[in-house]
């Protein structure tokens, strides 16, 4: 069997073309019941989706004033975590996990802080300077600040 590089690339290209057609037909419904929250000392009120992805992907390490960003997340299998990843970051939770693992196990980054409940999430965000996380809108009170995603 002789497979040339050009055959291989053609095959790959047509596959990707097919995928992009499928992907267009697969857009999700809008919902705003999950919100990004930060510690009240964080002065940022609006953030682009790209920057939010960079923060939760553990690539952006500091706020504009140079203070460290501290990312808090629920466990991978928590429904709110999965909903947040899809709604606010527009990526799938398994992608976040593999991005984190690539950083954690090659030494090129660090993992987010894990909280085990939504109650703990609110408490940690309210008490940790530079903290960012997420909660259901109904559970948000004055102890934390909502961050809007542009």
């Amino acid at each position: 069997m002789v497979v040339r590089l050009t055959d291989y690339l053609c095959c790959l290209l047509s596959l990707l073309l097919l995928i992009s057609v499928l992907a267009v037909a697969n857009t999700s419904q809008a919902s705003d019941s999950v919100e990004v929250i930060v510690h009240p000392s964080v002065l940022v009120r609006n953030l682009s989706r790209n920057s939010l992805r960079a923060i939760f992907g553990m690539r952006l390490r500091a706020w504009q004033d140079g203070s460290p960003i501290r990312v808090f997340v629920l466990p991978d299998d928590a429904p709110l975590h999965q909903f947040f990843a899809k709604e606010k970051l527009n990526i799938f939770p398994y992608q976040l996990r593999s991005a984190w693992d690539r950083l954690i196990f090659s030494g090129t980054g660090q993992a987010p802080f894990l909280v085990n409940s939504e109650e703990e999430m609110r408490a940690r965000i309210a008490n940790t300077s530079g903290a960012i996380g997420y909660l259901k809108r109904v559970d948000i009170d004055d102890s934390v600040q909502i961050l809007h995603v542009k």
Binding site: R61, G66, S67, P68, I104, G107, G109, Q110
Partner: peptide, 11 residues
């Protein structure tokens, strides 16, 4: 593995 980040730009 262990990682330590004493400053935001140093690990």
């Amino acid at each position: 593995n262990a990682s330590h980040r004493p400053l935001t730009n140093l690990q």
